[in-house]
């Protein structure tokens, strides 16, 4: 698993964008940490992660042609796992490797099955939209990445 460059990762929710939905900007010092920030932001929309215990480990693998499609596919996969296996995750360790004409992502996650009595649940995210969607290298600090994501609620 990639660990370098994970010194700093974060996200913030944006007001007054696509009013019925929820938008956030995620950042990371590396592509890996950006993806982890985005996964945490997505999860925070669905549940207060502090109430989730990391008792189940799950790994997902995603292959996509571009970096932004990789993020789109990765976040969509997390939504699928929430619906199909009723799993929500507390933390995420992402590694990304280039392949031939594609990017490969592996993510190891710790979390647990949804428990309506114990989890502080929030919104059931429907999908990741492509409105304003994009991954870019942020200006300023070298190597810093940023993604804008609008979720359909």
């Amino acid at each position: 698993m990639a660990t370098k460059g994970r010194r700093h990762s974060d996200y913030r929710f944006l007001s007054n964008i696509a009013l019925a939905d929820i938008a956030f900007v995620a950042r990371g010092d590396s592509l890996q940490s950006l993806f982890e920030s985005a996964a945490r932001a997505l999860t925070e929309v669905m549940v207060d992660r502090r109430t989730v215990v990391g008792r189940v480990t799950r790994r997902i693998d995603v292959r996509s042609p571009t970096v932004d499609r990789l993020l789109y596919d990765f976040l969509t996969e997390l939504i699928v796992v929430k619906d199909v296996d009723s799993l929500l995750f507390k933390d995420f360790k992402v590694s990304i490797a280039p392949g031939r004409g594609e990017r490969r992502l592996a993510c190891e996650m710790r979390g647990e099955e949804i428990d309506r009595d114990r989890h502080a649940l929030r919104n059931d995210v429907k999908a990741v939209t492509m409105h304003m969607f994009g991954v870019k290298k942020a200006g300023g600090k070298a190597g810093r990445w940023e993604a804008t994501v609008v979720l359909d609620i």
């Binding site: 929710f13 964008i17 009013l19």
Partner: peptide
């Protein structure tokens, strides 16, 4: 129709 975002 909404006039205010969920976050707001």
């Amino acid at each position: 129709g909404r006039t205010m975002s969920r976050t707001a």
